[in-house]
Simulated assay, not measured.
Amino acid sequence: MSMDHVSVDWDRARDTNRANWDDRVPMHEGAYAVDELSDPAHRSDVVRDDLPVLTPWLPDGTLADLDVCHLQCHIGTDTVSLAREGARLTGVDFSPAALASAAGLATRLGLDVTWVETDVLDARAAVTGDFDVVYTSIGTICWLADLDRWAAQVAGLLRPGGVFFIRDGHPALYALDETADELVTRYRYFPDGTAQQWDDAGTYAGDGTVANTRTFEWPHPLSEIVNALLDAGLRLRRLDEGRTLPWRFSPRMEDTGDGSWAWPDADRDRVPLTYTIVATRD
């Protein structure tokens, strides 16, 4: 695995990332506990953790009968879990392979979900209708170059009174050296206009390798994320930081036994692993 800082055109970066994410689909189908979703009571680990934070901000404390747009939905395990809460779901992703997998999953489970293939930075133009909830979680906005444009899509998709929810990897975590034997920063926390160009045949979940190994990511400090949402006209309702993560960022992390990972006890309170934001549109 190697990394360089480069200047790159967004269209090229997006298309390069899409090829990589297309390649990840078969590996993730085997790693995302898809078979467990055959149980109607099952929810993905991500949605299980997100619902208690999201639902108190909903009018009746439930997703039932609400219109929900899931941005960067990948293969749909979280999307169908949200649909099982009684919501009408629209899943948005830029990978045709991922959406084909998601659509097949929803069909097998007997769930009616609308799927839209688009660059998330063009979501408002591509998606029909508006929504009570816009949801995104987890490992999402590091793939985006322009958070102001992203936040404008979120605001444009929400109805007045609508709720936006995001849980994602904490930017302080992403600055750490994932291979070190202690907590050491290695990567930029603050942006400088360049992308991090990675060359890695592996993926964070599942066995095998990808043919399209190159990806581009962008660091976004917490201040940039919050200010992008505020500048888009959203009202910040809650900001939390978490000590567990739904994937193993570093070999030093320990399995918590409930689908999450954490630093060893000595480091658990030293660096946040996630942040969660709830915002609303007036």
Rank of each mutant, 00 (worst) to 15 (best):
L71K: 01
L66C: 02
R88N: 15
T77N: 11
R84F: 07
R88T: 15
D65E: 09
R84T: 02
T90P: 00
L63T: 13
Q72G: 10
G76D: 04
S81I: 07
R88W: 11
G86R: 12
F94V: 13
I75R: 02
L82D: 06
D78G: 08
G91Y: 01
T90I: 00
L63Y: 13
T90G: 00
V92W: 02
C69A: 15
L82T: 04
D65K: 05
V68G: 08
D93G: 09
L66K: 08
H74Y: 12
C73R: 12
D67A: 15
F94A: 14
D65G: 06
A64L: 09
D78R: 03
F94R: 08
G91T: 01
A87N: 13
D93K: 04
H74R: 10
C73D: 05
A64C: 10
D93E: 11
L71T: 00
A87C: 12
E85M: 11
D93P: 12
T77E: 12
S95N: 05
G91I: 03
V80K: 13
T90R: 00
V92E: 06
T77H: 08
V80L: 12
F94C: 08
A64G: 04
G86T: 14
D93R: 04
S95P: 06
R84H: 06
D78A: 10
I75A: 06
F94N: 12
C73M: 13
A87Y: 13
L71V: 07
V92F: 04
T90M: 00
V68W: 06
S81F: 09
A83R: 06
E85H: 12
L71F: 02
L63W: 14
T79H: 07
G86N: 13
E85V: 12
H70I: 03
G91R: 01
D78T: 00
S95C: 05
S81L: 10
T79G: 07
